[in-house]
Design a protein around this nucleic acid. Sequence first.
DNA 1: GTGAAAGCGCTAACAT
DNA 2: ATGTTAGCGCTTTCAC
Lengths: 350, 350
Amino acid sequence: MATRRVTLRDVARRAGVHPSTASRALNPQTREMITEDIARRVARTARALGYQPNPIAYLLKTNRSRIIGVLIPDITNPVFPPIIRGIEDALGAAGYTAVLANTDNDEQRERVILENMIGRRVDGLIMATARRRDPLVQRCLAEEIPLVLINRTVASGEVSSVVNDDEFGMELAVAHMARCGHARIAHLAGPLDLSTGFTRHRGFIKAMKEVGLKADPRLIGLCSSFNETEGRRVFLGLRAGNRRFTAVVAANDLLAVGCYDALHELGLRAGREVAVTGFNDMPFVDKLRPPLTTVRIPHYQMGAQAARMLLARLRDPHAPIEHVTLRPELVVRDSTGRAPRTSSRSRGSA
Amino acid sequence: MATRRVTLRDVARRAGVHPSTASRALNPQTREMITEDIARRVARTARALGYQPNPIAYLLKTNRSRIIGVLIPDITNPVFPPIIRGIEDALGAAGYTAVLANTDNDEQRERVILENMIGRRVDGLIMATARRRDPLVQRCLAEEIPLVLINRTVASGEVSSVVNDDEFGMELAVAHMARCGHARIAHLAGPLDLSTGFTRHRGFIKAMKEVGLKADPRLIGLCSSFNETEGRRVFLGLRAGNRRFTAVVAANDLLAVGCYDALHELGLRAGREVAVTGFNDMPFVDKLRPPLTTVRIPHYQMGAQAARMLLARLRDPHAPIEHVTLRPELVVRDSTGRAPRTSSRSRGSA
DNA sequence: GTGAAAGCGCTAACAT
DNA sequence: ATGTTAGCGCTTTCAC
């Protein structure tokens, strides 16, 4: 460093007090203990010298880093930026800093990053990476690290979480398809080891029953990950089978974009020959042609809520486990056809 | 914590050596000093006890955190994920960790985050947030913190950087427009206080001259930030003026998307009534209708290169300042019309 | 080659 | 109300 950084001792010496007095004077928690006069003098010289407390020393001493680790499965997926923003805002308001890490959906990488964060003594973690059965969640529990899951949760429910109401979201999507006159509705399911994929799949089946349709297992395609190439591949596979369908409910927007790709290759168009819905309402899906009908999740609020829950747990380590479910809404655009026509059941066949 | 973490002392005691011996035995740098026999014994007991060195103590002692701060102006912009990926990969290979922070294009926020990172003793910084004149860059220089700028650079050139060859990229875009028969070409310029906006603007004018056209100042619209709403607003403004144009070269993809929005409102279509090019080739622009012709920047390589340069500087603080320029390529899609009429150049370099 | 001792910058008993 | 002292877990002189 250019100039050796000014330390608490420097301030104390300059102010003519003992370092611990200076420490107490500068710490809002302990300022009461100190004569107002001295406290002010210390504060002034600290400012004059440009004193910046060394968080490392603080951390080594107190074991509190004021850092929250945030594990993101795929930073390339546009749903995460708003979530992150929500987390950062809520955390920042409480004097905490979010440290982001991208696990790339790779369990090995995830493990390395987690250990790294534990090593760096994060005060807590927000994980958007959870699988339904997740050893890393166990690891955090074992270390007694405050943890909140976001977007995805674990099957056991033994840790706090804030997720979307995926079943309800599916009901919205399926009900809309039915309202548009579709009876043969396919589903592009996400990975079933993720709560999102799992719950949306279950929600799809349940919702079909509710609108009086039966979910044909041969019209359910299982995607091994939530991305466009999988969406395209599985859509094409469904299409190649014998079963006809006029609508497809995708478990997320990226899968729906994959459907667009496939349709384009086939010379077809979403919202004309085949109705398509996504899930998430991520940025840019309103810019596609046709704009995508999808289920909007309040991502920002999700992030903020998770952060607040974590902060609560930081204050009280024995705070009860909470499961918060956020209510999504349907955003109707053009990928499900212009106007719901009740009469004509199967529109287009090809 | 559940079980008190095992410390170096524990290992030393268990192995029957002094803590400093254990330290030396475990540190690859100093292992030579130690009898191979003892070194092995220490290593074995360390493993047996599940010893994990405490990076905080290491940091407090050595002032080396093995952390690199990465400042991103807007994590919502899809160009950054690939850059981040490149940075993380190159850094990870060298045992460093990237810590990301989103500044939201807000100078105040940027300053807070920078001070925070300096406080946490990052070993170096990669900034994607630089303005052409940037006090925060000065701040890093003053602290002698190793720094590499990425994507954007500073006018003075006093710090290492890796950026795209924006002038060349503009030549590609303009030359393509000219080849397609356009003569009245508009430009949506980005903020001129950013090197990207500035250089692309200059590149546009230069490129126009090179193809024998004159850049009409009234066909240059200045956007105050790189996002869709600005693109839409400024496009509409240009359109409202008297001057006609048949093509618009946008300074980045988000601005081009704004043009799409505007065209849509006017009942027009990119690639038919008005040719549009973007800049960046960010994810999803190939999914727009029509797919966007744009200038592809090797974002991943950009990130990796910046990380490597920073690592080099970490090894040798007196490494010279380097300016690396990456060569972009034109990706022709449908937003510039189906077929260039003048010549039979092949389309689609993707 | 290994042990002893100091110290990174801070906070928190404990003493006065 | 303030000063004294010890120590967080590690590395690194300096002795031997």
